[in-house]
Write a protein that binds this DNA or RNA. Structure first.
Lengths: 234, 234
DNA sequence: CTACGTATACTCGTCTACGAATATACGTCG
DNA sequence: CGACGTATATTCGTAGACGAGTATACGTAG
């Protein structure tokens, strides 16, 4: 947690935002965040929380107001938001909203390696995912409706709306792919099965641009100049 | 990188998958991953790569085949995939496909804290995001078309298709919200401005369930039992 | 032919996230 | 009333991620 770097840690931003509601100690921050359901979109680990708060203090974004003690519980340090902290929070939020960040969802990673799995397995796995997603979607929808009917302003539920929209889109996409696999519309099934049965690409695909380039990279490992030397592909 | 834990690191899975194409040394793995465009959905850091490969070796998922040296370059260790490695890869992929993982996109985090920003700013920020997203979308679409027209099987572009679908969905959602803010349809604008101008909630919202509960949590910090003591909200 | 930029290939040290442990207090059920 | 489960509140140690550094080789523009 160096001195001058931008405050990118979402938990840190959440801490600053929570202190808008008044000075409090770290554990209370966590409870409030939880109560407000923010732990659904922001990872709250106690292990990290205290480190983050210390860092915020060092940077001058929060300040210790003093310590108190209730009964014989451990002493608690109460922090408040500073001017600098409020500004930094606003600035980071502006940035996070206006600039899409590059993220690495694991599902995309898995898809990118999917050729390693046998195609006949995939449809079933996608069906499982779809079920789970649909459950999630129903649940999230219910939460949103419940909140609305209890006068919780939409302003505080935007993140849930967004997450729901994304889940719906994912479910749609998964549904489409599963369909193509089931009815055999998916074009590469022959190729794909071939790779698993022969451990190699069918010859008609050996000489495309990308196969060439792949082989070029692979051949360097051979200690020979990248001449020819056909190799089996993934 | 402890001994028995599941292999959740996406880079580790990518390494295993790449070794399907034959034995090679770490740097070559990275190059091939890059050439295949996988670095778009899987973070490849050299600092991590070598650690990850070592870990895979310790777990028996890859094995060193020996070392070679080209010219006076540093010695390179060539690794191959083991049976165990192939199995582990397949098992992890199955899991990643069939079970949606909980993730924490920063945009959702930012939305969840958005009340800290003045509402009149938000529409503009969303417009910026939208522009960036639309550029991304055009770019990704072009890449997909180019790949298709060069015979690269769709099988190897699924992750790009998925990412594109997600971006489109996000753009749609952002467009909708921006619209509501611009034409004043968004219901909480009055409340929201009030929070920023008075630093407090308008009285008609002070007594809802959630405001009560929030106050209950806050009041504990006061060292008093959670009786009454109204407080200002975010 | 020499200087410079770029690619190859890896290592090191730092920073950070966070699991797990710790320790006290409170409520309650028999 | 004593034993047990849960909530309060924080600290500590360590595994893992990764930025930045290192050192050599190669291509090429001047």
């Amino acid at each position: 947690m160096a001195r001058k770097r931008k405050l990118t840690n979402p938990l840190a931003l959440a801490v600053l935002a929570t202190l808008h509601s008044g000075p409090m100690h770290p554990y209370q921050i966590a409870r409030l965040l939880r109560h407000r359901g923010k732990d659904d979109v922001i990872k709250i680990r106690y292990g990290s929380l205290y480190t983050v708060v210390q860092d915020l203090e060092q940077r001058g974004f929060v300040a210790a107001e003093g310590t108190e003690r209730a009964g014989h519980r451990p002493e608690r340090t109460v922090y408040r938001l500073t001017e600098d902290g409020a500004e930094e929070l606003a600035e980071r939020l502006r940035e996070l909203i206006s600039e899409p960040a590059k993220e690495y969802p694991v599902f995309a990673a898995a898809l990118s390696l999917i050729a390693s799995l046998h195609p006949d397995e995939l449809a079933g796995l996608l069906a499982e995912r779809l079920q789970a997603l649909e459950l999630d979607i129903v649940g999230a929808g219910a939460v949103l409706e419940h909140a609305a009917s209890h006068q919780l302003p939409r302003l505080f539920m935007l993140e849930a709306e967004y997450v729901l929209a994304m889940k719906r889109a994912e479910a749609d996409w998964v549904r489409g792919l599963r369909q193509e696999l089931q009815d055999g519309t998916f074009a590469d099934l022959k190729l794909w099965r071939g790779v698993h049965e022969n451990g190699a690409f069918p010859p008609e695909l050996q000489d495309t641009d990308w196969a060439q380039a792949d082989r070029a990279i692979l051949s360097i490992g051979e200690g020979r100049p990248p001449e020819d030397r056909p190799r089996e592909a993934p």
